[in-house]
Write a protein that binds this DNA or RNA. Structure first.
Lengths: 82, 82
DNA sequence: CATCAATATACTCCGGAGCGCATAGAATTG
DNA sequence: CAATTCTATGCGCTCCGGAGTATATTGATG
């Protein structure tokens, strides 16, 4: 499941889906990452002030990585979008 | 060119390559984004405290997007096919 | 419905980001 | 080399994230 994001809101939404896919609650993820549940909530809600450290911590714990690429590259992933 | 990143440092390094690929200086990117050149510098250096708003602003200006996916999906990555 | 789990909000405190501004240091070029 | 461009760093300032803690609000579930 590759999720595309360009804004903090989209990033947060994607992370939320990944967390839920792993059957975790915000509190549980907070435990694993050493972050407060409220911080997870803010991140997933797309608070633009959230720090990269928080994003990285959550991604690492959820086993995720980022691909940085130019916009609208119609690769094969297009199919995964719909 | 798809760049993979898991840490603020790797994110910053990737953005730096993208900026340079576009022939921009930090100052020029700062102009376009409304961010200080020092802020661009910090982001590219991988300061973990950098905010998502800064990342998003820079990505938008450079015409980039993120793909959030699970770590290490070797075969699925068709990016290196062309 | 009632209840319990999950998520969002609120408060104070502290630290650090990003601002304007300025400059030091590094890299590039002639 | 020197000269110029680019990048990193410093200071004072304001603002807000995240910690700790607690409580609302929302969402599932029986």
């Amino acid at each position: 499941m590759e999720q595309i994001a360009r804004t903090p809101k989209q990033i947060g939404a994607a992370l939320r889906r990944c967390r839920r896919a792993g059957g975790l609650t915000q509190a549980a993820l907070g435990e694993k990452t050493g972050l407060r549940q409220a911080t997870i909530s803010a991140l997933e809600s797309g608070e633009p002030g959230t720090q990269l450290r928080t994003l990285a911590e959550v991604m690492a714990t959820l086993g995720l990585e980022l691909v940085i690429r130019e916009r609208g590259q119609p690769g094969k992933d297009i199919g995964d979008l719909y």
